[in-house]
């Protein structure tokens, strides 16, 4: 996919998520919208996948450690054909296969359950290590939230992955600058995340998380690493592309009306962001 196609794919994902949640009227839209451009890159051609065979052992793996952004991942999976688009309307409904936080036992294409923060990151590290033990060359992608970096387990995994030279692990921090209680630095000061991961032994770089070309280029540099994992700090805007969420101060979890969703969909269809 070229840049324009990937951008269009990202807009499609945002629109489909809003269509799915339109009548639900609530969800973790802030953190879902901020990772949509990354998901568009990964599911728009970067990852080796087979939607008809989610358990294919030749696939690249993806773990959404910030599990509350599950609806963003579900949208990518639905649009790629892992399951019908209609399922998106069942997000968080009784008996759904698309729960608020990712559950690998319920959703085709979800490689690991996540939601207790920090745990998906360790699992992604474990997948990368398990593949390396077996001499396989699949890539493993994972996204942690910047708020999630408050968790000690993130830093345990950060120490472990370079120690075991897991160079087929490509991780991202969705640095949207906000967590549930407000701006990340008002909660705990994260400092320079790129520098921190570099100090832990990662190949780390800062990227505009809404520039799909830049994301793709960063992944390409990550794939050149022969003895260390890659951490790409995505500088993003929480709620990106969804007007009523993007401009809210506290937008970790959003409640909205169908009219607001329709308005945001219309804006996205016009190419607005």
């Amino acid at each position: 996919m070229v840049q324009e196609d990937t951008r269009a794919f990202a807009q499609t994902l945002r629109i489909e998520l809003l269509r799915g949640l339109r009548d639900v009227g609530q969800g973790h839209l802030g953190g879902a919208m901020s990772v949509m451009d990354l998901l568009a890159v990964l599911y728009g051609g970067e990852m080796k996948i087979d939607p008809q065979n989610p358990g294919w052992d030749g696939r690249d793996y993806f773990v959404l450690s910030k599990g509350h952004a599950g609806p963003a991942l579900y949208t990518a999976l639905a649009v790629k054909g892992y399951f019908p688009l209609d399922w998106l309307k069942t997000i968080n409904s009784n008996g759904t296969r698309l729960p608020s936080h990712c559950d690998r036992t319920k959703t085709p294409g979800v490689d690991m359950s996540a939601g207790s923060l920090g745990q998906g990151f360790s699992a992604a590290v474990g997948i990368a290590h398990g593949l390396k033990v077996q001499g396989k060359d699949n890539y493993v992608y994972t996204v942690v939230g910047d708020g999630e970096c408050n968790e000690g387990q993130v830093w345990e995994a950060a120490l472990y992955a370079p120690s075991h030279r897991l160079n087929h692990l490509i991780a991202f921090v969705d640095k949207n600058g906000k967590q549930l209680d407000g701006p990340t630095d008002d909660v705990l000061v994260l400092g320079d995340l790129r520098q921190k991961f570099e100090d832990f032994g990662w190949f780390a770089l800062d990227v505009d998380g809404h520039d799909t070309d830049a994301i793709r280029a960063a992944i390409a540099r990550g794939k050149q690493q022969t003895d260390k994992p890659t951490m790409i700090i995505l500088h993003t805007v929480k709620g990106k592309g969804c007007s009523f969420v993007e401009h809210e101060l506290n937008n970790h979890h959003a409640r909205f009306t169908a009219a607001q969703a329709d308005e945001a969909i219309a804006a996205l269809e016009k190419g607005g962001c």
């Binding site: 052992d57 793996y61 920090g118 360790s122 699992a123 474990g126 997948i127 077996q134 387990q153 995994a157």
Partner: peptide, 15 residues
């Protein structure tokens, strides 16, 4: 904590 998560991840690859 990380060890248990790593073990879980490894198991997903058949380990």
């Amino acid at each position: 904590a990380n060890m248990i998560g790593v073990a879980a991840g490894m198991s997903l690859t058949g380990i």
